[in-house]
Write a protein that binds this DNA or RNA. Sequence first.
RNA 1: GGGCGGUUAGCUCAGUUGGUUAGAGCACCUGCCUUACACGCAGGGGGUCGCAAGUUCGAGUCUUGCACCGCCCACCA
Length: 866
Amino acid sequence: MTLPDKYDVQQIESRWQKRWAEMGIYAWDPTRGREETFAVDTPPPTVSGSLHVGHMFSYSHQDFIVRHQRMCGKNIFFPIGWDDNGLPTERRVQNLYNVKCDAHVHSDPNLKLERGRKGDPLPISRSNFIELCKLVTVEDEEAFRHLWTRLGLSYDWDQEYATIDDHCRRTSQYSFLDLLEKNEIYQAERPVMWDVDFQTAIAQAEVTDKEVASAFNYLRFGVEGSDEYIVIATTRPELLGACVAVLAHPDDDRYKALFGKRAVTPFFKAPVPIMADEKADPEKGTGIVMVCTFGDQTDVEWWNQYKLPLRQIVGRDGRLMPVTFGAPGWESLDPEAANAVYGQMQGMSTQKAKKHIVQLAEELGGIIDRPKKDITHAVKLFEKGDRPLELIPARQWFCKIMDKKEALVAQGNKIQWHPEHMRVRYEHWVEGLNQDWCMSRQRFFGVPIPVWYRIDESGRVLYEERLLPKVEQLPIDPLDDAPEGYTEMQRDQPGGFTGDPDVLDTWATSSLTPQIATRWVEDPERHKKLFPMDIRPQSHEIIRTWAFYTIVKAYLDEGEIPWRNVVISGWILDPDRKKMSKSQGNVVTPEPLIDQFGADGVRYWAARARLGVDTAYDELVFKVGKRLCTKLFNASKFVIGRLEGVDPATLTVDKVTHETDRAVVAQLRPLLERAKEAFEGFDYAQALQLTEEFFWGTFCDNYLELAKNRTYEEGLTEGRLSACATLRLLHRAMVRLLAPYLPYLTEEVWSWAYSEDAGMRESVHCSPWPTVSEFDAIPAPVSEGTYDAAVAVIEAVRKAKAEKNLSMKAPVKLATVTAAAGTLGALTAACDDIRQMLNIETIATVEGDPGAALVSVETEMAPAEA
RNA sequence: GGGCGGUUAGCUCAGUUGGUUAGAGCACCUGCCUUACACGCAGGGGGUCGCAAGUUCGAGUCUUGCACCGCCCACCA
């Protein structure tokens, strides 16, 4: 065949993209057994996030591992899914269409909306909203599909899923019902962490900290039946109306005398008990603390412990709700004054209310004891939100995890973590859990909680009388579907039923990606063939969410680990060492990089980063990748071109007879061993580095030049056949070693020469991974040191030429090599190749001191031609 | 405050179980059109391996302490 002249990236990559789709080489074979299968729990990307360079980074890592396994003969199960349910999609729809979902708005089947509409957000029904979500996710998925295909990720597209599709909802609801039946899920009304903007409960895993400026306000509380007062320092004076007790340490002499008496709150004149508790820290503030419902987690604990009354003033929207002091449960010594003050604050956000009440206290006098003290402290935020979380009592679904910490750590220990130290992060997270997993979300675009409740004759919802769907009915939406034995007419009617309005935490579904991909619910046989999976590739920031919840679900549903290995990718940091993220505006979009450097070049960049190591973004590495491709292209063209006129079928291992050739094969063996070892630990970066070194240094720079001249010999001499066979065998091995990283170019090169070889396959990606056994039949060189001695001489002569500013082709009259006898002996076999390579007329040898340098070389250049 | 990881050439990074003179790529300098490649080749300069102590015949590598960077967790009166 005629080999192309120049390396045309775009042409090669688009051609093989099409060809691979036709060949179907990435399809999983369901008939093969578990032991020869390699199953990957691929992370479904959040499609509503923007595509950025980090995606190509970590998703390439999985593909290196997978392609290697495929070449090792494994039946690859490499599914791909899209995480489209959840808040990111809702938020994107809200922004794109300028709408908000309102459960009270009726569905409009003819609703047509333009993007980028100005003005206030338009309230639309839940079903219209979900329609828009689906529309947007389909578009977003297409963008990912396009990128993944271009990048050459070897997914089996027949295994595609989306976390909002029927199959995923069925799996997620099935798991929910399974755990409900096993009594691992329960419903409870209790204070939960609440985001006031998204207006939903959230779980511990979704909380982040943020340092914010705040201040201690020193407020005087009265003491009932006395003229004295106590001073309480608080950062949340706006919660004063929700104060239900006052606590100090039992040994605190300042307050001992007050225990048992009642304090009276300023403004609201609510008498609250003064109590002693070990957890009150005498060092903090003034050593005495007000308990509100609810300011923080400790308030919740005290409220539970002392059975304090509930005085909720912050509503689900983060504003102060209407309450009446003097009403039952809202005791006040002066209800009229209390209601006058509260009336001014009602409806304000907590932030506004705080300013207001402080100002009021200043105006009124006698309340503020001393100037406030500015501090900064960490507040809890929803990771996707920007206002502090509130603790708000609500009915929610919980999964029991607090009683399983030990078991969950044990499960983590059954899994291999790569790199190993990532296991510690998992352990610390599990050990630090402080509440059960809150699974319900008051959102829209998610998997509905598959539960209905009976309504009694008086219209009261009987939460303990649940109506559950049968497995065959799944997936259901309890807001659209009626439970068995009821009709839609009975919805929300006395004696009828009501549907649970909430959806599941997005992690409740994402934590089932193995079960989703294996079709746990629909096809238990298939599930058995694939579960537990072999690897879970993911990044380290979601160990506490995705990895953790997946381990939880596999344990609770099936008593299993979900996978045998977790393989952790690092992050791409921008050159300033900050995490690349959209909010920081430092994201690089992926497709232009592929245009510029080719998918192979981009993959090379990803392959250079070691597992778990965060890497600075450096465009230079893409260039290096493209350079490697060009080099491989040219070297391949040369090697295959030099075989012209020789029947490739005759270039077998037994033709490798020349000592120089055997010496270089001896150099290849340790590479094959070490690359194999590296890949067994999923260390693709190490394997690449070794391969690259060998390819560029040993193969291109030295061996190619050494063997070149013999390939030009006339007739099929033994020396020529040996050189050709060695070039071919080495090259064929190297193309395969590089195939996981550079799938396009290696496939192209493979198609030029090797796709019909015995034992090989049409695609390099299905051909066997090169092993030392392929080269077993080639004897070791007589002298172990032949290769090193030859290279030492080559380097010395090159240096001599460079110092004289001569071309490498410049003729050398005499090169005198001084070395130990053994080295000289090893060198003899390669002398002819060296002479030819460097245009040396004569190589003389002198026996030297064995303790000296390996070789020293004196050169005498031939006189320049006139 | 607790934990994990890191600190090696101007930059980005390797460095196997402790073992000659610590490596690569880029950048820089000097040459070279050499029957694959100038998108290339050859050569060169450049590092007290964060600091300090210790173990050892020998430490970039092991131990301890410290500093700085990053991340995770805790701290919310």
